[in-house]
Design a protein around this nucleic acid. Structure first.
Length: 420
RNA sequence: GUGGGCGUGGCUCAAUUGGUUAGAGCACCUGGUUGUGACCCAGGAGGUCGGGGGUUCAAGUCCCCUCGCUCACCCCA
């Protein structure tokens, strides 16, 4: 199998082959319809950006920027590890905020991070990103969360929603100091990772999976009790909105974010069915990021990303089956003349919008009928000597045993009318 | 970067304490039907057992190295 010369896809990069791709198409179509109902417009973005864009938005000190980005060092460009920064760059670059102050945008595509792959996590992975730029209304927060929730419901995927607020530059630093003091008091009892985190990213200690650490931090000070008045009011209105729209959630005062730009509302949709990769969608508010990237002052934004690999895994696990559509008609030609007539009819019918399967290898009729089956053909039409002579053929229904054969004149119009 | 598990035809897996030409199911090809798929029957093709080295009369099986996949940690959608 391995001989060292055979080229395989890179580690963490996957082909999505026929048979698998249908589920991806299904997921994407469902999502597009929901996004459109909520008045979001699609934006398509480049995969490659200046390295600085990500360094400035995600945070210089994050793992993503420090060691996970695919960067062409000599060109100072990077394959995007997430979409928000690119989307904001486009929003600023095209002056979209002038055309319409509040922009509701979504984008779907691959992201790249050089991590060790595991279940639900690849180096090239796919996200559906939804962002509202230019609004600071908490109504937008809860609307966005409610939309994600609706999509999960329509997909039949069972997730739970966790909600938190991270405060803002006015209240977070003070909370952070309080937390650091608390963590340092019991530093000796924490795992080695957390001892490191207490220096690098103290909020992360709240998120530790080690039981001993969990026990140490049960009574840790909560950000929710340290929010400033503005943040507190904002968060209350978000919760009010969720309650009004019937979206169930639990508060998780320990939920933190990996990216530096988040503030105020943060949320995660969690599943118990994917092993370590519990989050199928996550997002939050990022007031200030737009300005940081050179956009209008005092601008605001909120958004979330859904991990498509994870959603597809869940759809597979719950046995969501997407029927392949199959061709409308398979035309089997017998002999040189039969094949020739079939060839012409096929093109004429295809031009009429009818999908046609056929064989060009001169196979036996039986082999061609097997192909028709494999192509999930709705109908089959055989063209051999007797059909050539009479100019009339028989359309066979491949999906319904009981349906009798139908005679049809061998013209594009007659065939189209019969199977249409 | 760290640790565990696993590498046998296209796919899923067998192969006794090391012991003949490494098997099965699915899939594929051909035939049974000089012109009818899905079911059935018969036949066929397809494997340097991930790679390299070692032990042995003998290695898919044991040892070492290496590569790959996978799950978990870190981190994260």
């Amino acid at each position: 199998m391995e001989n060292g010369l055979k080229i395989k896809a890179l580690k963490g990069f996957k082909d999505i082959v026929p048979g698998e791709v249908e589920l991806w198409q299904y997921l994407e179509e469902k999502a597009r319809r929901v996004f459109e109902r909520f008045n979001f417009a699609e934006i398509r973005l480049p995969l490659l950006e200046e390295t600085q864009l990500f360094a400035r938005s995600i945070g210089e000190a994050t793992d993503i920027v420090e060691k996970e980005m695919y960067t062409f060092v000599d060109k100072q460009v990077t394959l995007r590890p997430e979409a928000t920064a690119s989307l904001i760059r486009a929003y600023i670059e095209h002056g979209l905020y002038v055309q319409k102050p509040v922009q509701r945008l979504f984008t779907i595509g691959p992201m790249f991070r050089h991590e060790r792959p595991q279940k639900g996590r690849l180096r090239q992975f796919h996200q559906m990103d939804v962002e509202v730029l230019g609004s600071q209304s908490p109504r937008v927060d809860s609307e966005l969360i409610a939309m994600a929730s609706l999509l999960f419901t329509e997909l039949g995927i069972n997730v739970s929603l966790e909600l938190n607020s991270l405060g803002c530059p006015a209240c977070r630093p003070k909370y952070r100091e309080t937390l650091v003091a608390y963590v340092n008091e019991r530093k000796d009892a924490l795992c080695s990772d957390c001892q490191r985190r207490s220096e690098t990213n103290p909020l992360r200690v709240l998120d530790c999976k080690v039981q001993a650490c969990k026990e140490q931090i049960v009574d840790a000070p909560s950000i929710l009790e340290h929010l400033c008045d503005d943040c507190s009011e904002h968060f209350n209105t978000v919760q009010d909105g969720l309650n009004q729209l019937g979206v169930k959630y639990t508060l998780n005062k320990f939920m933190v974010r990996g990216l530096d730009y988040y503030c105020r509302t943060t949320f995660e949709f969690i599943t118990a069915d994917l092993g370590a990769q519990a989050a199928v969608a996550a997002g939050g508010r990022y007031d200030g990021l737009i300005e940081t990237l050179g956009g209008p002052k005092d601008s605001h934004g909120i958004g979330f990303a859904m991990g498509m690999e994870r959603l597809v895994l869940l759809l597979e696990q719950q046995k969501t089956v997407v029927e392949p559509s199959g061709v409308d008609l398979f035309i089997a030609g017998i002999g040189e003349e039969g094949a020739r007539l079939a060839y012409g009819l096929a093109h004429g019918l295809r031009a009429q919008g009818i999908s046609i399967g056929m064989d060009h290898e001169g196979r036996s009729l039986k082999a061609q009928m097997k192909l028709a089956n494999k192509d999930f053909a709705k109908f089959a039409l055989i063209i051999g000597d007797s059909e050539l002579e009479s100019g009339v053929g028989v359309v066979k229904n491949m999906r319904d045993r009981d349906a009798g054969p139908q005679e049809v004149k061998l013209t594009v119009e007659a065939i189209a009318a019969t199977i249409g």
